[in-house]
């Protein structure tokens, strides 16, 4: 069965008929062509698909698109404003918080949610906020550094 959903993605309003069983990640990637949101596992294990729903980081691969009706979704594609990188994007780029880049969109979105809630997180808070996001390249050292640097840049 399909239903009509109205939601906001990266500040733009969208209205789409979606199947009840459509996952948010597939809606974003396939219907909206927002392929920055990645699929790294078979459901809820890696965090690569993390997006913000009403400002809160959530795995989009275990979220139904239908239940996002009326909500605000933010993805990695919406982070750069007027062609300029967000503080976190810049920091991940400059500090090598990204290597292969596959976990990066989810990692940045989870970090973005953290910084909005806690603009000056200590290392434990960063580790805790990114606990559901796996990275296989960096050993996380430069990810932590990137988040700290972005927090510093913001304040």
């Amino acid at each position: 069965m399909k239903r009509l959903i109205r939601l906001e993605i990266n500040g733009r309003k969208h209205e789409d008929a979606v199947a009840d069983n459509l996952l948010l990640v597939d809606y974003l990637r396939e219907a909206k062509k927002l392929t920055g949101t990645k699929k790294g596992c078979d459901g809820g294990e890696c965090g690569a698909c993390t997006v913000l729903i009403d400002g809160v980081a959530r795995p989009s691969c275990i979220t139904l698109a239908a239940t996002c009706d009326g909500h605000k979704i933010e993805t990695i594609e919406g982070q750069a404003k007027n062609g300029r990188l967000s503080a976190l994007q810049r920091s991940f780029h400059e500090n090598l918080g990204t290597q292969c880049g596959f976990c990066t969109p989810g990692m940045i979105m989870a970090a973005e949610a953290l910084l909005r809630q806690n603009p000056e997180p200590n290392e434990d808070a960063i580790r805790s906020a990114l606990g559901g996001n796996l990275c296989r390249c960096t050993g996380y050292v430069k990810i932590i550094k990137s988040v700290r640097a972005a927090a510093g840049a913001k304040t």
Partner: peptide
């Protein structure tokens, strides 16, 4: 920084 890093942090890669 990596020459292809911008693509990675913006989701354009």
């Amino acid at each position: 920084p990596l020459v292809d890093g911008i693509e990675k942090v913006t989701g354009k890669a």
